[in-house]
Protein backbone atom coordinates (compact mmCIF):
# COMPACT_ATOMS: atom_id res chain seq x y z
CA UNK A 1 0.00 0.00 0.00
CA UNK A 2 2.74 2.39 1.01
CA UNK A 3 4.67 1.41 -2.08
CA UNK A 4 1.71 2.13 -4.32
CA UNK A 5 1.15 5.50 -2.75
CA UNK A 6 4.72 6.61 -3.30
CA UNK A 7 4.61 5.52 -6.94
CA UNK A 8 1.50 7.61 -7.40
CA UNK A 9 3.42 10.51 -5.96
CA UNK A 10 6.36 9.98 -8.32
CA UNK A 11 3.90 10.14 -11.18
CA UNK A 12 1.88 13.16 -10.13
CA UNK A 13 4.80 15.35 -9.06
CA UNK A 14 5.95 15.59 -12.67
CA UNK A 15 2.64 17.00 -13.79
CA UNK A 16 2.05 19.84 -11.34
CA UNK A 17 4.47 20.37 -8.45
CA UNK A 18 7.60 19.67 -10.49
CA UNK A 19 6.33 20.23 -14.01
CA UNK A 20 9.55 20.14 -16.05
CA UNK A 21 8.66 23.13 -18.21
CA UNK A 22 6.51 25.35 -16.04
CA UNK A 23 8.17 24.75 -12.65
CA UNK A 24 11.70 23.50 -13.34
CA UNK A 25 12.11 25.58 -16.55
CA UNK A 26 13.78 22.78 -18.50
CA UNK A 27 13.40 21.93 -22.16
CA UNK A 28 12.61 25.49 -23.16
CA UNK A 29 13.86 25.05 -26.74
CA UNK A 30 11.20 22.56 -27.90
CA UNK A 31 8.60 24.34 -25.79
CA UNK A 32 9.07 27.44 -27.90
CA UNK A 33 9.86 25.82 -31.22
CA UNK A 34 7.21 23.17 -31.85
CA UNK A 35 4.20 24.84 -30.24
CA UNK A 36 2.90 26.55 -33.38
CA UNK A 37 0.32 23.78 -33.70
CA UNK A 38 -1.31 21.53 -31.13
CA UNK A 39 -0.77 18.39 -33.18
CA UNK A 40 2.99 18.82 -33.53
CA UNK A 41 3.22 19.77 -29.83
CA UNK A 42 1.43 16.55 -28.84
CA UNK A 43 3.65 14.60 -31.20
CA UNK A 44 6.78 16.11 -29.65
CA UNK A 45 5.44 15.47 -26.15
CA UNK A 46 4.72 11.82 -26.87
CA UNK A 47 8.05 11.24 -28.66
CA UNK A 48 10.04 12.85 -25.84
CA UNK A 49 8.03 10.91 -23.22
CA UNK A 50 8.79 7.59 -24.88
CA UNK A 51 12.50 8.44 -24.96
CA UNK A 52 12.33 9.61 -21.35
CA UNK A 53 10.64 6.46 -20.06
CA UNK A 54 12.91 4.10 -22.01
CA UNK A 55 16.14 5.88 -21.07
CA UNK A 56 15.05 6.13 -17.42
CA UNK A 57 14.35 2.39 -17.30
CA UNK A 58 17.63 1.39 -18.96
CA UNK A 59 19.75 3.83 -16.97
CA UNK A 60 18.11 2.74 -13.74
CA UNK A 61 18.65 -0.93 -14.58
CA UNK A 62 22.32 -0.28 -15.36
CA UNK A 63 22.88 2.16 -12.51
CA UNK A 64 25.10 -0.26 -10.59
CA UNK A 65 27.04 -1.36 -13.67
CA UNK A 66 27.93 1.97 -15.27
CA UNK A 67 31.20 3.27 -13.79
CA UNK A 68 30.78 6.67 -12.23
CA UNK A 69 33.55 8.21 -14.32
CA UNK A 70 31.91 7.62 -17.69
CA UNK A 71 28.38 8.13 -16.37
CA UNK A 72 27.45 11.15 -18.47
CA UNK A 73 28.77 9.86 -21.83
CA UNK A 74 27.05 6.53 -21.15
CA UNK A 75 23.73 8.29 -20.48
CA UNK A 76 24.15 10.35 -23.63
CA UNK A 77 24.74 7.22 -25.74
CA UNK A 78 21.68 5.51 -24.26
CA UNK A 79 19.47 8.56 -24.78
CA UNK A 80 20.76 9.13 -28.32
CA UNK A 81 20.01 5.50 -29.21
CA UNK A 82 16.41 5.77 -28.08
CA UNK A 83 16.00 9.08 -29.86
CA UNK A 84 17.25 7.53 -33.09
CA UNK A 85 14.96 4.53 -32.67
CA UNK A 86 11.96 6.80 -32.07
CA UNK A 87 13.02 8.90 -35.05
CA UNK A 88 13.14 5.88 -37.35
CA UNK A 89 9.76 4.62 -36.13
CA UNK A 90 8.20 8.07 -36.60
CA UNK A 91 9.65 8.32 -40.11
CA UNK A 92 8.28 4.91 -40.99
CA UNK A 93 4.81 5.13 -39.49
CA UNK A 94 3.95 8.81 -38.89
CA UNK A 95 5.81 10.65 -41.69
CA UNK A 96 3.61 13.73 -41.20
CA UNK A 97 5.01 14.17 -37.68
CA UNK A 98 8.57 13.82 -38.93
CA UNK A 99 7.90 16.60 -41.43
CA UNK A 100 6.32 18.80 -38.74
CA UNK A 101 9.09 18.38 -36.17
CA UNK A 102 12.04 18.38 -38.57
CA UNK A 103 15.36 18.88 -36.81
CA UNK A 104 13.69 19.15 -33.40
CA UNK A 105 13.05 15.40 -33.44
CA UNK A 106 16.76 14.37 -33.29
CA UNK A 107 17.38 17.33 -30.98
CA UNK A 108 15.43 15.50 -28.23
CA UNK A 109 18.92 14.16 -27.45
CA UNK A 110 19.95 17.46 -25.92
CA UNK A 111 16.61 18.09 -24.21
CA UNK A 112 17.73 18.88 -20.67
CA UNK A 113 14.69 17.16 -19.18
CA UNK A 114 15.88 13.72 -20.26
CA UNK A 115 19.53 13.96 -19.21
CA UNK A 116 18.38 15.84 -16.12
CA UNK A 117 16.03 13.04 -15.01
CA UNK A 118 18.69 10.42 -15.77
CA UNK A 119 21.16 12.19 -13.51
CA UNK A 120 18.76 13.33 -10.80
CA UNK A 121 16.44 10.35 -10.55
CA UNK A 122 17.10 7.23 -12.62
CA UNK A 123 20.73 6.91 -11.53
CA UNK A 124 19.63 6.62 -7.90
CA UNK A 125 16.27 4.84 -7.96
CA UNK A 126 14.93 1.37 -8.84
CA UNK A 127 13.56 0.55 -12.27
CA UNK A 128 9.83 0.77 -11.56
CA UNK A 129 10.08 4.11 -9.77
CA UNK A 130 12.23 5.47 -12.61
CA UNK A 131 9.72 4.35 -15.21
CA UNK A 132 6.91 6.05 -13.30
CA UNK A 133 9.03 9.18 -12.85
CA UNK A 134 9.69 9.23 -16.59
CA UNK A 135 6.00 8.80 -17.34
CA UNK A 136 5.02 11.61 -14.97
CA UNK A 137 7.64 14.00 -16.30
CA UNK A 138 6.69 13.05 -19.86
CA UNK A 139 3.02 13.74 -19.21
CA UNK A 140 3.96 17.03 -17.51
CA UNK A 141 6.05 18.05 -20.53
CA UNK A 142 3.22 17.14 -22.90
CA UNK A 143 0.67 19.06 -20.82
CA UNK A 144 2.87 22.17 -20.86
CA UNK A 145 3.38 21.90 -24.62
CA UNK A 146 -0.37 21.38 -25.07
CA UNK A 147 -1.17 24.54 -23.09
CA UNK A 148 1.36 26.65 -25.00
CA UNK A 149 0.34 25.34 -28.41
CA UNK A 150 -3.40 25.69 -27.71
CA UNK A 151 -2.99 29.40 -26.99
CA UNK A 152 -0.71 29.94 -29.98
CA UNK A 153 -2.78 27.96 -32.47
CA UNK A 154 -6.19 29.32 -31.41
CA UNK A 155 -5.09 32.95 -31.55
CA UNK A 156 -2.48 32.67 -34.27
CA UNK A 157 -4.25 30.46 -36.79
CA UNK A 158 -7.87 30.36 -35.59
CA UNK A 159 -7.83 26.58 -35.51
CA UNK A 160 -7.49 23.95 -32.80
CA UNK A 161 -5.76 20.62 -33.38
CA UNK A 162 -5.65 21.13 -37.14
CA UNK A 163 -3.78 18.30 -38.82
CA UNK A 164 -4.32 15.87 -35.95
CA UNK A 165 -5.66 13.43 -38.54
CA UNK A 166 -2.20 12.70 -39.96
CA UNK A 167 -0.95 12.04 -36.44
CA UNK A 168 -3.74 9.62 -35.59
CA UNK A 169 -3.34 7.81 -38.90
CA UNK A 170 -1.42 5.00 -37.17
CA UNK A 171 -4.60 4.10 -35.28
CA UNK A 172 -6.54 3.72 -38.50
CA UNK A 173 -8.62 6.18 -40.45
CA UNK A 174 -9.80 9.01 -38.22
CA UNK A 175 -12.19 11.58 -39.58
CA UNK A 176 -11.65 14.11 -36.77
CA UNK A 177 -9.31 16.81 -37.97
CA UNK A 178 -9.58 19.60 -35.41
CA UNK A 179 -11.90 22.55 -35.04
CA UNK A 180 -11.92 25.92 -36.62
CA UNK A 181 -12.51 28.79 -34.21
CA UNK A 182 -15.15 31.27 -35.36
CA UNK A 183 -14.02 34.87 -35.92
CA UNK A 184 -10.33 34.09 -35.18
CA UNK A 185 -10.30 31.82 -38.19
CA UNK A 186 -10.98 34.73 -40.54
CA UNK A 187 -8.83 37.18 -38.57
CA UNK A 188 -5.93 35.23 -37.11
CA UNK A 189 -3.41 37.14 -34.97
CA UNK A 190 -0.39 35.94 -36.84
CA UNK A 191 2.14 37.27 -34.34
CA UNK A 192 1.22 34.40 -31.98
CA UNK A 193 2.63 31.89 -34.46
CA UNK A 194 5.79 33.90 -35.12
CA UNK A 195 8.84 33.61 -32.84
CA UNK A 196 8.00 36.73 -30.76
CA UNK A 197 4.58 35.22 -30.00
CA UNK A 198 6.30 32.11 -28.67
CA UNK A 199 8.38 34.07 -26.17
CA UNK A 200 5.41 36.22 -25.20
CA UNK A 201 2.97 33.36 -24.57
CA UNK A 202 5.62 31.49 -22.58
CA UNK A 203 6.25 34.60 -20.48
CA UNK A 204 2.57 35.11 -19.74
CA UNK A 205 2.14 31.41 -18.95
CA UNK A 206 5.07 31.55 -16.52
CA UNK A 207 3.62 34.65 -14.85
CA UNK A 208 0.27 32.88 -14.41
CA UNK A 209 1.85 29.74 -13.01
CA UNK A 210 4.00 31.79 -10.63
CA UNK A 211 0.95 33.68 -9.43
CA UNK A 212 -0.92 30.42 -8.82
CA UNK A 213 2.10 28.94 -7.03
CA UNK A 214 2.44 31.98 -4.79
CA UNK A 215 -1.22 31.91 -3.84
CA UNK A 216 -0.65 28.31 -2.70
CA UNK A 217 2.42 29.34 -0.75
CA UNK A 218 4.85 27.61 -3.11
CA UNK A 219 8.02 29.27 -4.41
CA UNK A 220 8.00 30.92 -7.82
CA UNK A 221 9.61 29.09 -10.72
CA UNK A 222 12.98 30.63 -11.41
CA UNK A 223 15.35 30.02 -14.20
CA UNK A 224 18.24 28.20 -12.62
CA UNK A 225 21.32 29.17 -14.52
CA UNK A 226 23.57 26.23 -14.00
CA UNK A 227 22.25 23.81 -11.48
CA UNK A 228 19.51 22.92 -13.95
CA UNK A 229 22.20 21.93 -16.40
CA UNK A 230 23.03 18.24 -16.05
CA UNK A 231 26.68 19.04 -16.69
CA UNK A 232 26.78 21.36 -13.70
CA UNK A 233 28.37 18.84 -11.38
CA UNK A 234 31.19 18.27 -13.81
CA UNK A 235 32.05 21.91 -14.05
CA UNK A 236 33.34 23.53 -10.91
CA UNK A 237 33.16 26.91 -12.50
CA UNK A 238 33.17 29.99 -10.41
CA UNK A 239 31.45 31.87 -13.22
CA UNK A 240 28.85 29.15 -13.45
CA UNK A 241 28.07 29.52 -9.79
CA UNK A 242 28.04 33.25 -10.12
CA UNK A 243 25.72 33.22 -13.06
CA UNK A 244 23.27 30.93 -11.33
CA UNK A 245 23.40 33.07 -8.23
CA UNK A 246 22.78 36.13 -10.31
CA UNK A 247 19.75 34.55 -11.85
CA UNK A 248 18.41 33.29 -8.57
CA UNK A 249 19.28 36.30 -6.52
Amino acid sequence: MAEKKSLGKEFSKGIIAENPVLRLVLGTCPTLAVTTSVSSAIGMGVAASIVLICSNVVISALRKVIPNKVRIPAYVVIIASFVTIVQMIVKAFVPALDAALGVYLPLIVVNCIILGRAEAFASKNPVLASAVDGLGMGVGFTVALFLMSSIREIFGAGTFMAGIKDLLAIFGDVSFNGFSVPFLNENPMLIFLLPPGGFFVFGILMATVNKLAESKGKPRAELRGCEACPMAKNCNLHSCENSSKEVNG
Binding site: I66, P67, K69, V70, A74, V77, I78, S81, I85
Partner: peptide
Amino acid sequence: IPALALFLICLVSSALL
Protein backbone atom coordinates in the same frame (compact mmCIF):
# COMPACT_ATOMS: atom_id res chain seq x y z
CA ILE B 1 36.81 -0.90 -16.76
CA PRO B 2 35.07 2.41 -17.54
CA ALA B 3 36.37 2.33 -21.10
CA LEU B 4 35.16 -1.22 -21.53
CA ALA B 5 31.75 -0.40 -20.07
CA LEU B 6 31.34 2.57 -22.40
CA PHE B 7 32.49 0.48 -25.34
CA LEU B 8 29.94 -2.23 -24.53
CA ILE B 9 27.13 0.30 -24.23
CA CYS B 10 28.07 1.79 -27.62
CA LEU B 11 28.24 -1.69 -29.15
CA VAL B 12 24.82 -2.74 -27.87
CA SER B 13 23.31 0.62 -28.92
CA SER B 14 24.72 0.39 -32.43
CA ALA B 15 23.47 -3.17 -32.80
CA LEU B 16 20.03 -2.10 -31.63
CA LEU B 17 20.00 0.80 -34.09
